[in-house]
Amino acid sequence: MRAYADFVVEYKLTVEFPNFQDKIYVRDGEELARWWIAQTNRPDTIFCANDEAAAGFITEIRRAKFSVLGDIAIIGFDNTEVANLLDFTTIHYPVDQQAENAFLILQNMLHSTDKTLIPLEYTLIERHTT
């Protein structure tokens, strides 16, 4: 969000874009799709906070007879089974290593240790929506 705000300021853009933070459910993706459909100047790509919201967006767009990829590109985040089933592009991140890091942070705090966190690597999983 900060990068987006900085970009708007740097390039002196006037952008009317609603706040879609904390939108993580299928119904939230459907809401985002209805907003997109109502626009006269539509964004050509949507990046959702997770795959569930992306699935809702894709489903609502298709109901309205728009073409994913033809009319809009969509990217999810999580690389869950729903992304595979609906064949959409997503970002994979190692949730197991993220959980391990959370444990290490707690362990370091509780025992005054300094165990090194695991570097997390994110991977773009390209499918048929970008």
Rank of each mutant, 00 (worst) to 15 (best):
R42H: 12
I46N: 07
P43I: 03
R2V: 04
T123Q: 14
D114C: 04
T123R: 14
Q98Y: 10
P43R: 09
D44M: 06
E121F: 04
R127Q: 10
V15M: 10
A54N: 07
I91P: 01
F66M: 05
T59C: 04
T113K: 12
E10V: 01
R34I: 00
L117N: 12
A33I: 07
M109F: 13
Y4I: 09
F7G: 03
Q21I: 05
R27P: 00
P18Y: 11
A102E: 07
D44Q: 09
Y4Q: 01
Q98W: 05
D51A: 05
T59G: 06
D6A: 09
P119I: 03
E10R: 08
L32H: 01
H92R: 11
F47C: 12
E16S: 15
Q107M: 06
I37T: 04
V68L: 09
L86P: 03
A55F: 02
A83G: 11
Q39K: 14
N108Y: 09
D78E: 08
R63Q: 11
K12C: 12
Q97H: 13
N19V: 05
F103R: 13
I58C: 12
E31P: 00
T89F: 08
N79V: 03
I24G: 15
L120Q: 10
K23P: 05
D87W: 00
D87C: 11
N108P: 10
N108S: 09
G29L: 08
V82Y: 02
I118Q: 13
T59N: 14
G76F: 04
Y93W: 10
L13S: 10
Q97P: 01
F66P: 00
A49Y: 13
R34L: 15
R62E: 15
P94F: 05
I58M: 11
N19T: 07
E81H: 03
V95H: 09
T14K: 12
I61Y: 07
H92T: 02
N108V: 04
D71F: 06
V82P: 06
S67G: 10
L110N: 14
F7Y: 15
Y93Q: 14
R2S: 11
A83P: 03
T45M: 14
A38H: 12
G56W: 09
R42G: 02
A99F: 06
I61L: 15
Y25H: 14
A83F: 00
T59Y: 13
V26S: 08
A83N: 00
D22I: 00
R63H: 15
F20Q: 08
F57T: 07
A5C: 01
Y25Q: 08
Y11C: 00
I37Q: 06
Y25V: 01
R62I: 13
T14Q: 14
F57N: 06
E31I: 03
N50W: 10
T129F: 03
Q107K: 15
A55S: 13
Q21M: 09
Q97G: 03
Y11H: 15
D96M: 03
L110D: 02
R27C: 08
F47A: 07
T80C: 01
E100D: 10
G29D: 03
L85K: 13
Y93M: 08
R63T: 05
A64R: 15
A102G: 07
E81W: 12
A3T: 01
V15D: 02
A3Y: 09
D87N: 15
Q98V: 15
G56N: 05
D28S: 10
F57V: 07
N19L: 01
G70C: 01
W36Q: 03
D44K: 14
E60Y: 09
R127E: 01
H92P: 02
R42S: 11
